[in-house]
Design a protein around this nucleic acid. Structure first.
Lengths: 337, 337
DNA sequence: ACGCGTCGATGAAACGATTCAATAACCCGA
DNA sequence: TCGGGTTATTGAATCGTTTCATCGACGCGT
């Protein structure tokens, strides 16, 4: 029967009083049960149950100074790529009984900073972050201050920050080389802002591929900046469909954008890939099942998360590491004549 | 120039010492800047900057006993339905400058319990949870202990727990009534375990619809339990395709399952909806863009999250509330002859 | 010149846990 | 019976904040 009054949550000293022992003993029951005799342990345990006592994590953290939680900040929690990534992180964290707090920056540096501050204040073991901007000075500062940082899904521009990334330049090149191979000489690139490193890199790769084919990027490639979701794909594609000099292909910076693009093309009565070819990026689960199965650049997403968590847990004993995976192209109907 | 030695993170008393004031004054600068003179405030602020001091959130929490963070536990962070839900929650939370910690229980009561404990230990303002099992006693206990709980995406079985849900019985009925209306008299239901309330309710709705049509559920409906993702849809459908008495339609408990189902049907060379009709649930973003656009039961997902956060922030001054939204059916090609 | 009110700053208590040196109780062998 | 060694328990210090009663200084009106 729970007490009727008690508004305040029970503390360790309430337990101690009820069990007739000192707080030190209660703490021992909690953390080194072997040090305490069976009789008192049972008494204390029953007191704990009776008061439904739950230790105050903040007090514990304050005293021991460490905590088994890590934070992750991604650009967009609604993007399957990032949740698959989170899944990878969780899988590795589970092994060591760590827990994960996830937050979404929505590509907003303000929000990113806010969550960084929150995590730091709470003393997490470390933070994995997909930076919302090109500038990582604030993260370097954080790291110097002793917060363990791992850059997610983008290579570190500085030696001191560990990172786990996929070669986005190569990925961009893969996609565009493929389109060029299919005979496309006018490629629209629906991209995000270059302040996001992944976007800048994929663009760089695209340019490289065009140049390698002996063509002029300025005439072959046409970049439109869109928001990184299906609505962005809609908007970016709408501005294309009615043009007389419409590009023959679209490269989308991620599959969500590609989804919007395909949707808008279909509504405009254009056929894919005959009127317009489309290539996406990330190869999310549904890419293969769309009305027109989507050609996409596949990344080892899950593995990315696992490695990132691994690096973070490994601690600072080792030097910072910079892991780079290679993407592959998965060709499907949306770009194959 | 940051100090060279300092491994320990700067505390408020380091700041006080450097600025030549008492810790109380530093605290005032932080929390009630108006109480302190301009001169000292500036001195303290520069000391804070110099040491790059970040207040220890646990210490603060320990003292004030409250925190502006809430936790959410969903079944599967990789399911777009739940991330859209999270988006709704975040949107409402942002208004009040609260932050959200998200975790995924993977339908595992163990993991759910673990995160509940973690959140409680950290003293969050409240927890929104999509329960992994039918049994919510542990949540009632938590609530009695003073933790603010809101049940997400399922009606509360008890008066004392607030909840925000969508009428799943109605949703299940909508889907099945539609299939019956299309002339289907053999419906396979790829469902999750009935320990998950949403699954049980959708099943109940399906049964109701069949009975209302004067048919026998035992012959019209055929339930298969699958895991709640695309792989589950694959598995559940594979066991169907080769049968001579194959059902003419499949109702999937969510769109991820439906994605797997469509995929497997296609690979088996069956046409949708002519050989087999498919209906999903949630109407996620990609549902309309699949090879065969998917008929699905739409829920006001975002609104669901907003209301849940709203209820949680409103506090316990009011009585617990039980909000129920109504779903609607979106008919597309996958089920329309 | 005196008292009073205001304002700014101080210092100590409190929050709830962990840790560790000190103590108490006990057993056993000589 | 006594001393020494083990084992179980205690109590106080500590972590980094916030809060609040108290104090000192200063300006102003009489």
């Amino acid at each position: 029967m729970p007490s009727t009054t008690a508004r305040r949550r029970a503390s360790i000293s309430d337990v101690a009083r009820l069990a007739g022992v000192s707080v030190g003993t209660v703490s021992n029951v909690l953390n080194r049960p072997d040090r305490v005799s069976d009789a008192t342990r049972e008494r204390v345990e029953s007191a704990i149950a009776q008061l439904s006592f739950v230790p105050n994590g903040s007090a514990r953290h304050l005293r021991v100074g460490t905590i088994t939680t890590v934070g992750a900040i991604v650009l967009d929690i609604a993007n399957p790529f990032f949740t698959d990534l989170a899944r990878g992180i969780e899988a590795r964290l589970d092994e060591d009984d760590y827990t994960l707090m996830i937050a979404s920056s929505d590509e907003d540096p303000e929000r990113e900073a806010r969550y960084l501050r929150l995590y730091e204040q709470h003393g997490v073991q470390g933070i994995m972050v997909v930076p919302a901007t090109d500038d990582v000075d604030h993260l370097v500062t954080l790291a110097e201050r002793g917060v363990r940082i791992v850059l997610l899904d983008r290579p570190s521009p500085v030696e001191s920050l560990s990172s786990v990334a996929v070669d986005d330049v190569h990925g961009g090149a893969l996609a565009v080389r493929h389109l060029l191979g299919q005979g496309h000489e006018r490629i629209a690139f629906l991209n995000g802002p270059h302040t996001i490193r992944q976007c800048a890199d994929r663009w760089a790769g695209a340019v490289q591929a065009v140049e390698a084919a002996g063509l002029d990027p300025a005439v072959t490639l046409e970049e439109t900046t869109v928001s990184l979701n299906a609505d962005g794909g809609d908007a970016g594609t709408r501005s294309l469909v009615d043009r007389t000099d419409r590009p023959t292909s679209v490269f989308c910076v991620n599959d969500l954008v590609a989804l919007g693009s395909l949707r808008t093309l279909r509504r405009a009565g254009l056929s894919v890939p005959d009127d317009v070819a489309v290539v996406g990026y990330d190869d999310v689960t549904f890419a293969a099942e769309l009305a027109t199965p989507l050609t996409s650049v596949r990344q080892p997403t899950h593995e990315l998360g696992v490695r990132a968590a691994d690096l973070l847990l490994r601690g600072d004993d080792g030097e910072p590491e910079h892991v780079v995976f290679q993407p592959t192209l998965v060709v499907r109907e949306s770009s194959a004549r």
